[in-house]
């Protein structure tokens, strides 16, 4: 089943074309990669899918619904969650509360029920707590649930960000450079982790990554972007041997360069 379909997406900032007629189709259960040199427009595409930017032209269809004009929080509610390139946790909140925030959009009590702690609200709050703990357990952060998010080491912050994204109960998860700043060992752990959550939570994943080991290692489909346009699509093998791609990456030192 086709989950996400992007047609001719274009975004211009003034005179600059950040994304040019970008198209992409993802099926349920895909694990796809989006790569390209710095400034190719990858994060812009994430921002367009999640509604942070409105596209200049083009359409984004998610589960047969046109979400092009929807607001970020509505898109999240429909089932698209994301992480950020430069981790963006709620730094003053506890680890547990970071995850609980993501359940808020499913809350069915109004503000008075919440303030006066009606049985209906109380029950939901307990459910949130249980589910959040379950998620933290899944990413291995349960022991740290009362720490401030900003006090966590880098690797844990990445995991917490993913746990938080999972708490919105997404069908599609967008990961923006999940391996950035990790050492090779951590990176291998992360690859396993991504594959595991994909199975456990029945997800479709689109990820941006600079680390070619990650992309080539876990992605089934890869789209290569340069200067806002798609220059190649295919399986990891096809991409590795594509002369266009090699050319685009020459400036940064070849396909295997880590930038």
């Amino acid at each position: 089943m086709e989950l996400l379909k992007i047609e001719d997406l274009t975004k211009r900032f003034g005179g600059l074309v950040a994304v040019n007629r970008f198209s992409l189709s993802l099926s349920q259960g895909d694990l796809a990669g989006l790569i390209g040199p710095n400034g190719a427009g990858k994060t812009t595409i994430f921002n367009l899918i999640t509604g942070v930017y409105k596209p200049t032209e083009g359409k984004i269809i998610f589960m047969n619904k046109d979400i092009t004009q929807k607001k970020p929080h509505q898109i999240t509610a429909l089932g698209i969650a994301r992480t950020f390139q430069n981790i963006r946790l709620f730094s003053k909140l506890s680890v547990l509360d970071n995850v609980k925030v993501a359940f808020h959009l499913r809350l069915r009590s109004n503000i008075f029920a919440a303030v006066f702690d009606t049985p209906g609200y109380s029950k939901q709050e307990l459910e949130m707590e249980a589910k959040a703990e379950e998620l933290l357990k899944a990413v291995g952060l349960l022991e740290l649930k009362n720490e401030r998010a900003s006090a966590l080491p880098y690797g844990h912050q990445r995991k917490l960000e993913i746990a938080r994204a999972l708490a919105t109960q997404p069908k599609l998860l967008l990961l923006d450079e999940p391996a950035a700043g990790m050492n090779p060992e951590e990176t291998i752990g992360l690859m396993r982790f991504i594959q595991k959550i994909k199975e456990d939570f029945d997800l479709t994943i689109l990820l941006i990554e600079h680390d070619m080991k990650v992309v080539m290692g876990i992605c089934e489909k890869i789209t290569v972007l340069d200067h806002g346009s798609v220059i190649a699509r295919g399986t990891p093998e096809e991409i590795q041997n594509n002369p266009e791609v090699i050319k685009a990456y020459l400036g940064t030192g070849g396909v295997y360069a880590r930038s």
Partner: peptide, 17 residues
């Protein structure tokens, strides 16, 4: 509080700003 700490992240977590 999520809005206070990071507006964009809060919005991405489904908080209607």
């Amino acid at each position: 509080k999520a809005i206070r700490d990071d507006e964009s992240a809060a919005e991405a977590m489904g908080v209607n700003l």
